[in-house]
């Protein structure tokens, strides 16, 4: 995978998620594009590249979502690095495990993987936040309410993200050759593919 393409695209996707996507909110559920990018990369990149991409993406997501701690005058916004990193790695792993039996060159497959990725990342995040809540955090990292409610809400978010992802997924699929993925690009013989596996 070409990292000099992934990083700017990731920056664009995170900017869109932070600033533009709330415009498409329905009933408090905001679609996100980062699961699409992660699912797309995980569908085509080598395993190690996909996990690295997930970790980098998760690092930025952690930076963008501060947790609330106890402050002196007001609750304190504290950036906690780590939970999103692991959550994104879990989401990428889910797509990596399922991609073998998926027909990848299809926009609906990318949308389906987006749902899987977002859902597993959410479950992993809430599990981590639940463990942290037992000893470290005064407020759960997922916000207010119970963990079960957070899972339900994130499930709807994941579904909505997958629906919204169909159009941008088509755009990403059309740029497939640019990314230099190990398992995509023009059809080639198995021997050639093996030589490109180490990206």
């Amino acid at each position: 995978m070409r990292w000099w393409i992934f990083i700017p695209v990731m920056a664009l996707v995170l900017s869109l998620d932070a600033a533009l996507m709330p415009a498409f909110a329905i009933g408090g559920h905001v679609p996100q594009l980062w699961p699409l990018l992660l699912a797309f990369v995980s569908l085509y990149a080598s395993r190690s590249a996909a996990i690295w991409a997930a970790m980098i993406l998760g690092f930025w997501l952690d930076a963008m979502h501060p947790a609330l701690g106890v402050g002196i005058d007001a609750p304190r916004a504290v950036v906690v690095f780590g939970p999103h990193v692991l959550a994104c790695a879990a989401g990428a792993w889910c797509v990596l495990e399922t991609r073998a039996w998926l027909y990848r060159r299809n926009v609906l497959t990318v949308a389906f993987s987006t749902f899987n990725c977002a859902l597993l990342a959410s479950l992993a995040f809430i599990a981590i936040a639940g463990i942290r809540g037992a000893y470290a955090d005064p407020f759960p990292l997922w916000g207010g309410g119970s963990g079960g409610a957070a899972v339900g809400s994130d499930m709807v978010d994941a579904l909505y993200s997958a629906v919204i992802a169909i159009l941008p997924a088509w755009g990403l699929q059309s740029t497939l050759t640019v990314w230099g993925f190990a398992t995509a690009g023009p059809r080639f013989a198995g021997g050639n593919r093996m030589n490109r596996g180490n990206d």
């Binding site: 504290v78 906690v80 690095f81």
Partner: peptide, 28 residues
């Protein structure tokens, strides 16, 4: 790297607050 992320995830907020805000501002 994954083990490092797991370790960071387990750290309490007080361990990260001195530097994480600055790093987040730089990343943002």
């Amino acid at each position: 790297a994954l083990a490092g992320a797991a370790l960071l995830s387990a750290l309490p907020q007080s361990s990260q607050s001195p530097w994480s805000g600055t790093l987040a501002a730089i990343l943002w």
